[in-house]
Design a protein around this nucleic acid. Structure first.
Lengths: 119, 119
DNA sequence: CATGTATATAACTGATAGGCTATATAACTG
DNA sequence: CAGTTATATAGCCTATCAGTTATATACATG
């Protein structure tokens, strides 16, 4: 279950920054150069380059080469891993699972109360 | 689209740590005390308390009170936000969307090439 | 080959993360 | 109320993050 631990660490850390999420959103419409990606932001070009490096290390993007441009492309795999990870918890908000959720929670709470009192 | 930016920042940052993800996995089976949550780990109790505080600030857990115990319970909402966010990118790995994905990518790439050459 | 454009890297800085130990607080229990 | 248990907080340390400016590198082109 935790074999993707390192991968998820890097992916979630990369996604924790709004600039990087905005870059991904932009790349969802197609590849783009660093300058194009930097345009919507007030921060410097090196800052964007570093954000891209973080995304690249998390494998959320790959970089190409087109003359002096280094176009970035979004990569699906880490996003799929996030989707798979969070799907584990779907029961907690999906009404389809409410009954099971409630049941599991009830028996768990009862057990804990007993355990604690015994100690 | 970015109205949940702050919330997602905290949520993704919280999820970037494997200890905190393990705590959430444990809480998916029902509420638990700090000591119970700390048991599987080699780190100190204060370290676990701090991890719980991070999860709490991200609203991924809430804390209760049961005598000297402070049971933690998982909260669905931020996880649902993550699921919603990542669902935006479902097209990139779901084969159902491959054709659209390919089409979008092709026209995007063509456009970019023209723009770059003109400059 | 000199210049312009696109991007990366280096060096610095201030803030935050995540661990520790020691200590404080809160509640139960004899 | 003294001792025990559960948890939180404080203070410290080291590492990493996210930004900056200055500079280097890579490529295109007149």
């Amino acid at each position: 279950m935790l074999q993707n631990s390192n991968s998820l660490n890097a992916t979630f850390a990369a996604l924790a920054d709004p600039t990087r999420r905005a870059i991904l959103a932009r790349l969802a419409t197609g590849e783009a150069s660093v300058t194009e990606l930097a345009a919507p932001f007030t921060m410097s070009q090196p800052a964007i380059s570093r954000h891209l490096k973080v995304l690249e290390r998390a494998r959320l993007i790959t970089r190409g080469r087109d003359a002096q441009w280094r176009p970035a492309r979004i990569q699906a795999e880490p996003l799929r891993e996030v989707a798979d990870w969070v799907a584990q918890y779907r029961q907690f908000w999906d009404s389809q699972f409410d009954r099971l959720d409630e049941y599991l929670h009830t028996i768990q709470t009862e057990e804990k109360k007993h355990v604690r009192k015994r100690k």
